[in-house]
Write a protein that binds this DNA or RNA. Structure first.
Lengths: 174, 174
DNA sequence: CTCTATGGTTTGAATACTGAACCTGCTTGG
DNA sequence: CCAAGCAGGTTCAGTATTCAAACCATAGAG
């Protein structure tokens, strides 16, 4: 499967991955949330090569995750800013950072601590159910086909049904 | 920056990306949460080539995200299962799926709907503060160096301070 | 008229991925 | 006994991506 095919899969995860599912893009987004906005700054901070940076920024702009905003005329220069669609990636970024804090930090502890303005405390991000507010765990979530469901292979997060192969085997066995 | 250097950065996001920050790995993880466990099944469902699949599974096992469990002797065959560390990737997976549901779904709506066992309702995942339970937004989160902080370039998610370059400019201007 | 700043593009060499075929260990059927 | 099949890989040649370094374009400053 190639990148362009990925974006056409009827799976939200595959489609998201077609936009942000590459090493450099994720690092660029980290810096965007850090208020980095200019080509030269991304380049220096990330140690990314210039052609790749140009390519990834263009893709993100094409996908409406970033916008190019001119910040001066003559010579015309642009900076890259997160759109609403881009800002909505925040939970993904926070989830990635948090997993790294918990599972990839060295003995000395995490590189940084987050504090929440509303309560003033150091916190961890937590994923909860929008309806009841309880913390989500993979075993307590089931999935059913949505309005555009088609290919049953791509129903992710099914937790109680055996996978397709095991089903077939069990059928054969009985 | 190469993959191996990535994992040595003192940034939780970079370290996480060194483990899961590639297209195929993310798709493999999607299928893991779907209870897919065998080489042949991954290969067929994902349309990934066999050498790459073998390579990615090995990496995930080396990182303790998956374990190889024998499910039969003679011939010895293994399946791949999520470890605790792997299961903890659930919020990342859910955040990615949800963003795709909201921003990448076609006109016909999302491919699937999640229901939560505890409350029985269809829900969306929501990221909240572990301390006060309020929904997190990038503007309300600040960051300070943690126990192992070193390189100020990699403090992500700083929202009120201008980036390093703008700081330098303003200093020069004043 | 040259130097610097910013935001790129071009170019070969190195690296990674793809597709197809092949290998291993074992079971099953004839 | 031999052939075929299954599961889980590995090998190999060709193609696509990425890297590093250099170059280009626009414009202001000295």
């Amino acid at each position: 499967m190639r990148w362009n095919e990925l974006s056409e899969e009827n799976c939200s995860m595959a489609r998201t991955i077609s936009v942000i599912g590459d090493r450099w893009t994720l690092l660029i987004l980290r810096d965007c949330f850090l208020r980095v906005r200019r080509f030269e700054d991304f380049q220096e901070r990330l140690g990314i090569t210039r052609p790749i940076l140009a390519n990834r920024l263009k893709k993100l702009v094409d996908e409406f995750v970033l916008v190019k905003v001119p910040y001066q005329q003559r010579p015309r220069r642009y900076e890259y800013r997160l759109t609403q669609k881009g800002l909505a990636l925040y939970p993904i970024v926070m989830a990635i950072v948090h997993w790294g804090d918990v599972y990839m930090a060295g003995k000395k502890g995490r590189p940084l601590v987050h504090t929440h303005d509303l309560c003033g405390k150091a916190f961890d991000p937590m994923m909860v159910c929008s309806e009841c507010g309880e913390q989500l765990s993979p075993k307590q979530v089931h999935v059913r086909p949505g309005p555009s469901a088609k290919d049953p292979r791509h129903l992710p997060l099914e937790t109680d049904l055996p996978g397709p192969r095991r089903l077939a085997k069990e059928k054969a066995a009985s």
